[in-house]
Amino acid sequence: MKKKLTTVVFRGTPEQEEKLIAAIDKYKGVKGAMMPILQEAQSIYGYLPIEVQKIIAERTGVSLEEIYGIASFYAQFKLNPDGEVAVAVCLGTACYVKGSGQIIEEVSKQLNVAVGSTSPDGRYSLEATRCIGACGLAPVMTINGEVYGRLTVAEVAGILEKYR
């Protein structure tokens, strides 16, 4: 499992940092507290960007790499925040032969987001999914769970407009 690094600009607030520091300090002297600290940090920020991991490294004295090694090991730790608009394009066989490759390219171009990541402003995220079982509607994408089928490249911009 390879975790993608984020390009989302960090927008942590002083309040979040205060909370994080309080969370870290709560575990002072507690043995093996890195997992709960990371879990609390993720619940504060929604993900674990370098800015957050650095604060944890500084306050716990654990090396940044060791923390990153942990964060990249466990499936639940996220290095990318979910976009406010989460787009998923099906790249299952049926959708793929029907041109979902071009669809995902178009979405990527329209939103200026690489597949598997989140736009720097945190607004859009784009991912490729395995077959979602809607082959009859191929090619298919979902936006925040809503399904759009029988897509053409030309339609993509119009659909995305609704979420701008």
Binding site: M1, I50, S63, E65, E66, Y68, G69, S72
Partner: peptide, 26 residues
């Protein structure tokens, strides 16, 4: 790097077949 030198700038990242040695955030 970590245990002997106390530096610890390289370690195992990711897991399974994708495990590799690197620094934080690559």
């Amino acid at each position: 790097c970590g245990k002997v030198q106390g530096v610890g700038v390289i370690g195992a990242n990711d897991r399974g077949f994708d495990t590799h040695i690197a620094s934080a955030f690559e």
